[in-house]
Amino acid sequence: MALLHTVNKSPFERNSLSDCLRRAKNGSAVLLIEDGVYGALQGTSASDEISSRDGSIKLYALGPDVDARGLSEKPLIDGLELIDYAGFVDLVEEYSSVQSWL
């Protein structure tokens, strides 16, 4: 039993990403969507917190949201995988339940 967590807020505006990471157990997955994808950028004031969990939790970001925000050429956090909506569906199936950190 492991959860899929989704985060849809920019870490520069809200605490949702920190709130999520603090509760996400090892073995769970965190998917960044909507404004949450700003948390996928490398070299920001928010990067270290999420990077430090690479290896213990799986990190994903929704590619269409990354592209929409002009981030497709920017370096993303090591270990973070970009997925599309179909990949999002697959993650929902793979994990036992979904918690949306709204």
Binding site: P64, D84, Y85, A86, F88, V89, D90, V92, E93
Partner: peptide, 11 residues
């Protein structure tokens, strides 16, 4: 978009 993708995958 999620719902559409899920339907396309046969869910």
């Amino acid at each position: 978009q999620f719902t559409k993708a899920a339907l396309e995958k046969g869910h």
